[in-house]
Design a protein around this nucleic acid. Structure first.
Lengths: 350, 350
DNA sequence: TGTTAGCAGTCGGTTGGGAAGAGTGCTAGC
DNA sequence: GCTAGCACTCTTCCCAACCGACTGCTAACA
């Protein structure tokens, strides 16, 4: 679509978005003319603006106001940034130093890294940011143990290739003997070992052909533990700087602010929003989709990966009127840094 | 101070706070007269209001408005509730059923219980709520299990009177035999059972007189697990329903809302605010303290305890104009329920 | 002395009109 | 095709008037 625009229309549209991003006010023809196109008159700019309005890129809030960009204009703007790598804002030395400092200690749980990354992105861009870890696929149960405790209770230990999960103590029928424990343990292993944890979501005890007479209670308990684990570990989402969005006039009313915060803090909604596009896309900009509760927002995400495997996504959520040049610059930098950190083979630091 | 008030002044003051809590509007003399004191005229009420204003209990936002309560009035109101147990709002059957249902499964990590309690309180009262766990004092280790896994790994299970903690798998020396496990288990129990978890912070293996030859590695690992547990559980704060505060007109502007949310989500500030008064107070109401960033707020906290020991605090934070009767009723109910849950001896459920 | 009815006074909130300002669209001329 | 100039439109701000809500005061009454 942008192919059809004349060069001058492109310049004017770009200028308009630029100005609107930095001021937040409707942009007048004379603003554009004086700051971006001194070689023509404001009347000329006006007639071009009329044409751009007819094409659906921009609109006037009211007759005697300047123009504001519509979604099409933002899309055009972002494309023109992406097409030309030079236009993204380079990070300042302070910013790169800040980021490097934060990542000085590169070892830690992956949780910590994701959280730290989200924090950094938010601090540097001044927008709300997030980091989503892909839920682990192919976590296989290696072993199940039923450990009896004092007083007819027991703990179920589930060992996977990623680690151990265990916690909930379960009540046993009164007066169980060691043989019961052993038998239960046996059955648990027969049923669960070798299975993928994520298959347990839809797993039904009736599917199995093991004799479970007398142990179905325990099996159900274990299933419940697994499902809780799945729900807790599916697409871990870290959000940082949620309140920063409230600084922007778009969210300067309590109703919208509340709605935004509710969405942003709901991990399910977040991971759904973010998983919508295939997460293999390197850098994605989505602007103002109405269906998901964060309309009036733009979401910029970058996939970070190690080798071929996408580990998760980091991104920024802000007003449509966002400083895309800066945000994309920061995300690209973080992308490189994160790959370096997560894969120690490939550290490009120091 | 309230001693000096005449009975009629007390009734009027109580009525005024009642009305203001339910409507949020300045209360006029005729409101009070028609709904609470039909036996006198509004002119009489007016002269009493004048007197109460002179005493510093209430004020007029402007000359031609009704009165609104000042902090002193809320304090009087809360005292009059506390003095007379009958005036708290009893929970409805649905509410008690709701709470019981949520606590059906009483076993679980203590984390879950506090978080669940905060959620329940927020759901039932419709205010922002929180739950602070005192860093555990007197958590006694009841049992330690070393559970061998495949491939020279093992999981340490530490059972306390509060629940079970376990997670990290540890590496064993290669080629261990069952006897080694049994012996290690034995030693672990000798060393740790009966000890307070919090003493483990400064515990040194050299203090003990058990023969640990060959097992000091495992002992160190267990100590590390305990210390991580301690650091993760020091004054854990759970906040639920933070956004509910934004429903109240007091926080219907973005600036205040932002400030509130920032404070409420900062665990350090929260635990500081909440630890200010000795946490041994059974039920405490603090109204509008300016120094802590949550001015314009009232905070009602209840200590929940098992036996003599305070386990933590649960509470509500809301506008000064809060439904104290309901909140205190809910907190008292939760207090009893939590004591019952945490101490299985004393379950008053089902 | 305490209570009450009646009334004047005060103040916030709303409404409506008018002036100022910003920016456009249109038109005529280059 | 571009530009200068001008009329038009629409928002915003301000001010004045009005209305409604309550109070405080006063005088009369038990």
């Amino acid at each position: 679509m942008s192919k059809e625009l004349s060069e001058r229309k492109k310049r004017i549209l770009h200028a308009l978005v630029d100005l609107y991003i930095s001021t937040g006010q409707p942009v007048s023809s004379s603003d554009i003319q004086s700051k971006y196109l001194p070689e023509v008159s404001s009347a000329t700019v006006r007639s071009e603006l009329s044409a751009l309005e007819a094409l659906g890129y921009i609109e006037q809030p009211h007759t005697s106001a300047g123009r504001i960009p519509l979604k099409e204009a933002y899309k055009f703007y972002v494309e023109s940034i992406s097409a030309d790598g030079d236009t993204v804002t380079a990070l300042t030395d302070q910013e790169t130093a800040f980021i490097r400092e934060k990542f000085r200690h590169r070892l830690g749980k992956i949780d910590d890294i994701s959280k730290a990354a989200a924090k950094i992105i938010s601090d540097v861009t001044n927008y709300t940011s997030f980091c989503v870890e892909k839920s682990p696929v192919d976590v296989v149960i290696e072993e199940v143990k039923l450990v009896p405790l004092k007083g007819n209770r027991a703990v179920v230990l589930i060992v996977t290739d990623r680690g151990t999960l265990a916690n909930k103590a379960i009540e046993l029928p009164t007066d169980v003997k060691d043989e019961y424990i052993d038998a239960a343990c046996n059955i648990l292993n027969k049923v669960f070992v070798g299975r993928n944890i994520q298959d347990m979501e839809s797993f039904e005890l009736s599917e199995i052909d093991v004799e479970i007479e007398g142990f179905s209670g325990i099996l159900e308990e274990v299933l419940k533990i697994l499902r809780i684990y799945i729900s807790e570990h599916s697409d871990n989402v870290f959000v940082e700087g949620a309140l920063k969005m409230l600084d922007y006039p778009e969210y300067n009313n309590v109703e919208d602010a509340k709605n935004f915060l509710a969405v942003i803090q709901d991990k399910d909604v977040m991971s759904e929003i973010l998983s919508d596009d295939g997460s293999s896309i390197e850098m994605s900009v989505r602007i103002g989709r109405e269906d998901n509760g964060v309309d009036k927002c733009a979401i910029v995400t970058a996939a970070y990966r190690v080798g071929d495997e996408v580990m998760g996504q980091a991104g920024v959520i802000g007003p449509e009127r966002m400083d895309y040049k800066k945000v994309i610059g920061v995300l690209e930098y973080m992308k490189r840094t994160l790959s370096g950190i997560i894969d120690p083979e490939d550290g490009d630091k120091e």
